[in-house]
Design a protein around this nucleic acid. Structure first.
Length: 806
RNA sequence: GCCGGCGUGAUGAAAUGGCAGACAUGCCAGACUCAAAAUCUGGUGGGUGGCAACGCCCGUGUCGGUUCAAGUCCGACCGCCGGCACCA
């Protein structure tokens, strides 16, 4: 192997950067606002398996971008840290008896070594770890602020319970009825929980998506998750008694078609209105529904079930008596937990009505005519069977009926969201303790701010209690405390926070990681925030990104941060798949270990390869052959650096290629299109290295362009050129626009869009001349002979298209 | 089922509506070598005509449309990937 000594070079420059703190960032007030950038990576959870080749893909991208920005004269904040509370460490502790802190520290050490071996330009002085008391002190602090504002509340609610993780889960953590983390079917369980009122921010979380430079698909995912819908609430009087049932509907225009009502089994009116004759059946149904897991509820979705309560309500528009049923296709947590059923125009109601032989009345028609309905028709149309409203179009009807309802005082416009409040407590040890105390006299009392952090107690084992309570509940000396208000005996809250808590605000702590007086100094926040570019995996599209937006908006409302949104631009890097395009996984044995790649190919090769594979956002398979190609590129660079340098002016064509290359690499790097930037550098090298000597004026800018991509090699070459280190802040090369174009261009002559001849002409040849030359071209004249020319289109430097009669 | 995104050589992929396949991988041939590796040079979408120089036809999932010109824009369909899924 004639290879370049990448291993020595990489170690040398990593050591240099570390000892010289090359990438330490300060808040220099003389740098104007538009010359500052905050570029953020999603911080990793330090797993026992170590870094995966997919991990650094996004890190490489941001690192290249940051190094480029520094050379462009920007002040760049680029930090790294660890998301270090979480279940895997706790589960490992249960299995082996190793304290989660110990295994977490080991994993962080391993991750740090691995990350440092890849040559990132992080400011390591700002490193943080969310499980450290100095950090979670402020997670607790923010929680208390939320609690003070009534955005954290306690409730006994049926929650998603993972029987394997032994903890409650937020809605967002349940996918297809399975636990997002371990894949175990989620069950329902009634437990006292701490819940964050994220729904109070639903409207703003939705509306402010507009101001973000995020991918449309990601915004759409958040939009769908928030799930805003507009409609009306309508109160139906019961036939007997004084109670009424309030329903939410997006189709108030179908009120005349409401032929029955359905309550959720959990609806509070169920017990009250059920007639003695129906009581037994209703009770049984309610009990059965309560026992079903989410999974079972959705699995049985096709076949509708339900029971008649024996009660009737009155349809407010026509006074008709309609039966009230219960069914588990009505969710207690959405809308009012009750619906008016319009079987003619709602698929689910239709299925239910068919099964239980309830009447179906058509009230919307495409053309105003009536016909037998084969299935529910939920499209808009013209009102029929709707009394005084007949003939109205759906949109007009909606407006009119809402006015009518408001006037009568039985309903009005309403907005609903699919988004639910955030179940925030976890019945586990390895998380931030919720800093609240339950006092028999004063109720729930906050741990005073000056007593934060409320530290996790030291324990030997973290075995779950099995009762649905946190392991903390089994430590009496920790649970039993005194009330901060009255000093009397009180008990600590034993639930901990979910893993998402720490990641909700870590980007703020990087700004001022050692601050003892605040989560971050306001002047630091004003200097850097909001984050200009955030890169990470798409798996956090609705979890982390929704939660942290919520916290950030809250902090904004409290006047503690300067922007309503934390992350202005966001990119999801694609996954790196195993060879053959399948997912990398331990079980398939196709996992690539970055340590092996660094050892065999070097960090620079890995960087160039991963960025050359394709666009950042798309998933692409790993290829051992491909990485060999990246290595060859760097080898060729190394050999080119050993050519004798000359001070001669570079020749015309090469000089032009250089300027074209600088332009393309600058533009592509700026747009994070690293694959095409690398391709252009390859083109340049292939041309420039084919000569016996290398003009210094070509080589110097090339090395500078290489610096963000292969920083170790570039530092070495920079030194080899006789410069003092480091290359990190040497100004990025500029280009001369006139030199970016070729002198000669190949102009294509087409007849009816088909290429019939080509000619090499000076760039910029005038349209008139192009036309003349095309028409004068021998071959063109031959093909054209005798045909009528209808039109000639000239595109300068590109083509002439002659439209001729056939 | 609903909502998005994507379909280009053997492979990863390029291509402001203007020469499809840049760059890289692989493969083939040649140079160097006793030989191999490494390296360097050339070739490499399919079909077809010509001894050749060089032509012609077809080709970006399928079918249609807009346009002088479509991988790119529009419509329908097929396939793959992702998200949501009784949300009234």
């Amino acid at each position: 192997m004639t290879g370049y000594p990448f291993s020595d070079i990489e170690k040398k420059w990593q050591a240099y950067w570390e000892t010289h703190k090359t990438f330490r960032t300060t808040e220099d007030p003389s740098v104007p606002r538009e010359k500052r950038r905050y570029v953020l990576d999603m911080f990793p959870y330090p797993s026992a398996a170590g870094l995966h080749v997919g991990h650094p893909e996004g890190y490489f991208a941001t690192d290249i971008y940051c190094r480029y920005l520094r050379m462009k004269g920007f002040q760049v904040l680029h930090p790294m840290g660890f998301d270090s509370f979480g279940l895997p460490a706790e589960n490992y502790a249960i299995k082996t008896g190793t304290h989660p802190r110990v295994s977490t520290e080991q994993n962080i050490a391993r991750f740090t070594t691995q990350i440092k071996s890849l040559g990132f330009s992080y400011d390591w002085d700002r490193q943080l770890s969310s499980c450290e008391p100095e950090y979670y002190r402020w997670t607790q602090w923010i929680f208390l602020r939320l609690w003070e504002k009534g955005l954290a509340y306690e409730a006994e609610v049926p929650i998603n319970w993972c029987p394997s993780c032994l903890t409650g889960l937020a809605n967002e953590e349940v996918k297809d009825g399975l636990c997002d983390r371990c894949g175990t079917p989620v069950t329902r369980r009634n437990l006292r929980q701490w819940i964050l009122r994220i729904t109070a921010y639903a409207e703003r979380l939705l509306a402010d998506l507009d101001m973000l430079n995020w991918s449309e698909s990601l915004k759409l995912m958040q939009t769908n998750w928030i799930g805003r819908s507009e409609g009306a609430n309508v109160r139906f009087k019961l036939e007997k008694g004084t109670d009424s049932i309030e329903v939410y509907t997006t189709r108030p225009d179908t009120l005349y078609g409401a032929t029955y009502m359905v309550l959720s089994p959990e609806h509070p009116l169920v017990r009250k209105i059920t007639t003695p004759a129906q009581k037994k059946a209703v009770d049984e149904y309610v009990r059965a529904a309560a026992m079903k897991s989410d999974m079972e509820r959705t699995e049985l979705a096709k076949d509708k079930t339900g029971v008649f309560t024996g009660a009737y309500a009155l349809n407010p528009v026509n006074g008709k008596k309609i039966p009230v049923w219960i069914s588990d296709y009505i969710l207690i947590s959405y809308g009012t937990g009750a619906i008016m059923a319009v079987p003619a125009h709602d698929e689910r109601d239709f299925a239910f009505a068919k099964k239980f032989e309830l009447p179906i009345v058509q009230v919307v028609s495409k053309d105003g005519s009536l016909r037998e309905l084969e299935e529910a028709d939920s499209t808009d149309g013209i009102a029929v069977n709707s009394g005084e409203f007949d003939g109205l179009a759906t949109t007009d009807f909606k407006k009119r009926i809402v006015e009518w309802l408001e006037k009568k005082g039985i309903g009005g416009r309403a907005v609903n969201y699919k988004l639910r409040d955030w179940i925030f407590s976890r019945q586990r040890y390895w998380g931030e303790p919720i800093p609240l105390v339950h006092c028999p006299k004063d109720g729930t009392v906050a741990v005073p701010y000056d007593q934060l952090p409320l530290r996790l107690p030291e324990v030997k084992t973290v075995t779950p209690t099995g009762t649905g309570e946190s392991p903390l509940a089994a430590i009496p000396e920790w649970v039993n405390t005194t009330c901060p208000k009255c000093g009397g005996p009180a008990k600590r809250e034993t639930n901990t926070m979910p893993q998402w808590a720490g990641s909700c605000w870590y980007y703020l702590r990087y700004l001022d990681p050692a601050n003892n007086a605040a989560f971050a100094g306001r002047e630091k926040i004003d200097y850097w925030m909001p984050v200009d570019l955030y890169v990470g995996g798409a798996e956090h599209a609705v979890l982390h990104l929704l939660y942290s937006r919520f916290w950030h908006k809250f902090l904004f409302d409290e006047g503690l941060v300067n922007s309503p949104e934390p992350f202005m631009r966001l990119i999801n890097q694609g996954m790196i798949l195993g060879e053959g395009g399948v997912k990398m996984s331990k079980s398939l044995g196709n996992v690539i270990n970055p340590d092996d790649i660094v050892r065999d190919f070097g960090a620079d090769t890995m960087r160039v390869y991963e960025m050359f594979m394709g666009p950042l956002e798309v998933s692409k398979p790993w290829s051992t052959r491909g990485i060999a190609g990246a290595k060859r590129f760097l080898e060729r660079i190394w050999r080119a650096s050993e050519l004798p340098l000359t001070d001669e002016e570079p020749t015309g064509a090469l000089l032009r290629l250089l300027h074209k290359t600088i332009k393309k690499v600058s533009r592509d790097t700026d747009r994070l299109e690293f694959n095409t930037a690398i391709a252009q550098m390859m083109i340049f090298l292939n041309e420039a290295a084919g000569h016996p000597a290398m003009p210094r004026k070509l080589w110097t800018p090339f090395v500078l362009m290489l610096a963000p991509y292969a920083p170790h090699l570039a530092e070495e070459l920079w030194e080899k050129l006789g410069n003092a280190p480091s290359i990190a802040r040497v100004p990025w090369p500029g280009w001369i626009e006139e030199l970016t174009a070729k002198e000669l261009v190949e102009v294509v002559y087409q007849i009816n869009g088909k290429i019939r001849a080509k000619e090499s002409l000076p760039a910029g040849t005038a349209d008139a001349e192009l036309k003349e030359r095309a028409l004068g071209n021998e071959r063109i004249r031959e093909i054209l002979s005798g045909r009528e020319i209808r039109k000639v289109i000239v595109v300068r430097n590109k083509l002439v298209n002659i439209v001729a009669a056939v």
